[in-house]
Design a protein around this nucleic acid. Structure first.
Lengths: 207, 207
DNA sequence: TAGATTGTTAATCGATTAACAATC
DNA sequence: TAGATTGTTAATCGATTAACAATC
C-alpha cells in the first residue's frame, strides 16, 4: 500500500476529486473507474492503480461510492480542514486570486494579501484589506500560515520567497516566470501562462 | 534527429528559452548544459538529450552560444513571429491577463477580449476594448486567430470551447476547472491554481 | 446466476541518468 | 597540450497498460 507514492500520482488526485464533485452535483451516487476515466481522458487502469496506492475504495461489480471516495481523497490530501493562504502582490493578478471563489469552495481561505505600493495599502480586496509587505513576516507567523501564492514581478520573486520561508511558509505557488531557489522540504509549484502557450505553439503550423 | 519528439521534451524548451533570456540579461554570451541545469534544477544530461532531438547546437569544451541557441529554440517552437491571442472573459482574471506584459515580450499579442456582461462591453482593458462575446466568431475568423485563453466560469467553458473551435481556434489555455471536450488536433492546456495547491498540501503535515 | 467492475500482477512502454569517446 | 564539455549510447529507473482472477 502506502510508502512512497509517486509525485505524479499525487498530482492526479485533485483532478479525481474535482470530477467527483461534479458527479455529485449531477446527483450521481456511484461511479466507476471507466466512467471517471472517460470524463477525464485517463485510462481506467490508471485510476484504479493510482487509488490502489492508498487502499481499496471500490466494490467489484458496482464501482465506487462517490461520497465515500470523495471523503477518502480529502483525507489523503489533507483537505479535511481549511488551509490559510497568503497572497503576495496586489496587482491585477493578486486581485484576481483574492476574488476567486474557487479557493474557498475547495479547501482554502485567502487569509491576507500584501503589496509594497503605498497606493494599494488599505485597499479592500475580496473580503480582505491589502497590507504592507513589511507586515508579511508577522502576519504569517501569527496566523501560522503554511501556504503562499507569489504574484509579484519576476525581480522581486526570490526575495519574497526567502522572506516567506523565513516566516514559516512551507509551500509556494508562484506566477513569477523565474526558477525559485528554496531549501529541501519547501514545495514550489510554478504557473507561467506564457510557457504553456509557447508549448502549444510548437504543435501549430507556423504562419 | 527529429521525427517524434516526446511531448515532455517540448514542455521543457520554453523553460530553457526563458532561462537563456535571463542569462542574456546578465550579459553572458555562453553557457553550458551544466550551468543551465544548475539554474533550473534539471540534470545536464537531460538538457543535452532534449536538445539533441533537434540538432547539434553546442561546441565541445565551450558549451552553447546563448544568442544562437535562443534563436534555434525560437525557430523550433515557432516563435519567430508574434501570435495573436483571444481572451474570453473580462472578469478579474481576464483583466489580469490582458494587462500582463509577459505575453508581448515573449511572442504573443493579446488581440481581443470578450465578455457577455453588458457592464463590461466597451470598457478599456490594457490596450483593448472589451467586445461582446457574440462578436467572438467574426473577430477570430477575421484576424485568423489560432490561440485563445478561457477565463470564464466553469459552466460556460465548454460552450465557449465549442464556439472557439468552430471559429478556427487550434489551441486553448483554460483556467476553468473543468475537463474540456475537443476534437483531435486541438490542443488544450489547463491551469487550475486550486489543483496545484491541493497537490502541495498532500506533502504538508495535517494541522 | 450472469454481468460488471475491482485490485493487482506482469508486460510494455517511455523517460532519465551515467558514462565516455570525440573534439573544441 | 590539458581541461572542459558536447552528443550519444546503453543501462537504469519509473510509469502506463493489458489482462484476469476475485467477487459484488
Amino acid at each position: 500500500m502506502a510508502g512512497e507514492i509517486p509525485d505524479i500520482v499525487i498530482g492526479r488526485l485533485p483532478i479525481y476529486l474535482r470530477e467527483l464533485k461534479r458527479l455529485t452535483r449531477e446527483e450521481k451516487t456511484t461511479t466507476s473507474s471507466q466512467e471517471l476515466g472517460r470524463r477525464l481522458g485517463i485510462s481506467s487502469a490508471q485510476i484504479r492503480k493510482d487509488l490502489s496506492h492508498f487502499g481499496e475504495f471500490g466494490k467489484q461489480g458496482t464501482g465506487y461510492h462517490i461520497e465515500y471516495l470523495t471523503e477518502q481523497l480529502l483525507k489523503i490530501l489533507h483537505l479535511t480542514k481549511k488551509w490559510d493562504v497568503a497572497i503576495i502582490g496586489a496587482g491585477f493578478l493578486g486581485h484576481a486570486l483574492a476574488n476567486y471563489g474557487g479557493f474557498g469552495r475547495r479547501g482554502f481561505r485567502i487569509a491576507c494579501i500584501f503589496d509594497n505600493n503605498p497606493a494599494q495599502i488599505g485597499r479592500a480586496m475580496g473580503e480582505l484589506t491589502v497590507q504592507h509587505v513589511d507586515e508579511l513576516e508577522e502576519t504569517i507567523a501569527d496566523l501560522q500560515i503554511k501556504l503562499a501564492i507569489i504574484a509579484v514581478p519576476a525581480e522581486k520573486a526570490q526575495e519574497i520567497t526567502d522572506r516567506l520561508i523565513e516566516a514559516g511558509i512551507k509551500a509556494i505557488l508562484t506566477y513569477a516566470p523565474v526558477p525559485l531557489k528554496a531549501p529541501d522540504g519547501i514545495r514550489i509549484s510554478y504557473s507561467d501562462p506564457v510557457v504553456q502557450m509557447q508549448k502549444m505553439v510548437y504543435y501549430l503550423p507556423p504562419n
